[in-house]
Design a protein around this nucleic acid. Structure first.
Lengths: 157, 157
DNA sequence: CCCATGTCAGTATCACTGAAATAA
DNA sequence: CTTATTTCAGTGGTACTGACATGG
């Protein structure tokens, strides 16, 4: 292993980007581990959590909240439904919509918080001052905005 | 669209996690757009950039730098090689290793910086004070560490 | 007829596991 | 023989595009 293990000497933006990818990869790895251990991935668990807090949302509302394409959400919902963690019912007021609800089994699953992305985030936030939290949250927002600016309007959604 | 578009009222960790996923999704979207426009994805471009700054690395060194499993890198390298953006040559000192080099064509490609993840990151960093940068970078590191703690030792790598 | 909602088919990258080939 | 490096086969989730069925 002759390689430099740290990224000293890289342009700052590249170092930062590398750190960002490092976090992203770990999120994906933990997501996969969650699936193996408890049955749901990170995005699937976040879907359940949001659905608990905003009950009986429609798919398009949820997609907007998750920043996902509706067709991406379709797959996520199918996997949750096949595990009987959510149920779908037709909206009586609008036949196109399906209303989503978390089942008792789904609620039981989200109660277990160890080994989740959410608990990792909570652990970090607990160690930050409120001004540090504000800075971090603001940077996250700026990053989203800056990425949006690089995206073609057609892909911006 | 009746849904709340903001996440006001959510537990803080969940709001933060949602913001994190929002960034991740945009990174993936921009990565896909880059592939459509210029031929390489985000991870592929970062691979090229690192390979330019640390020339003739081996695959395992690069995998460590990128926080990737070697077998994941194999696919990335194959796609770069098939586009003739890198070349591989056997290490004369160690026949198991292949030394990686960016081609002229690869260098030409990384010179174009518009519409890249790196330029989005640079735009954000430019607007931050040095203390804000430090906070952000520290939080990124803490996040990686906290995620690692949730990962089983076997998946920690 | 037109628009909105949601699903489906097809495609691609990424990321892994586990096994294998090759060389040190 | 053991270890290190890398590739390969197989699997799965995410995320898209574009087309489609259905309902308002």
């Amino acid at each position: 292993m002759r390689a430099p293990t740290s990224a000293v000497g890289l342009p700052e933006a590249l170092t930062f980007l590398q750190g960002l990818w490092a976090v992203v990869h770990r999120m994906e790895r933990l997501s996969k581990q969650m699936a193996a251990a408890g049955g749901v991935t990170g995005p699937q668990r976040l879907t359940l959590r949001l659905l608990e807090l905003f009950p009986t949302m429609s798919a398009s509302e949820l997609a907007a909240l998750l920043h996902l394409h509706p067709s991406t959400l379709t797959g996520i919902l199918q996997r949750l439904e096949s595990q009987q963690l959510i149920v779908r019912s037709a909206d009586p007021a609008d036949g196109r919509r399906s209303l989503l609800r978390v089942t008792a089994r789904g609620s039981r699953l989200t109660k277990r918080t160890s080994g989740t992305l959410e608990s990792a985030v909570r652990a970090v936030l607990d160690g930050l001052s409120s001004s540090q939290r504000e800075t971090t949250y603001a940077v996250l927002g700026q990053l989203a905005t800056a990425l949006d600016r690089e995206l073609q309007p057609s892909m911006r959604r």
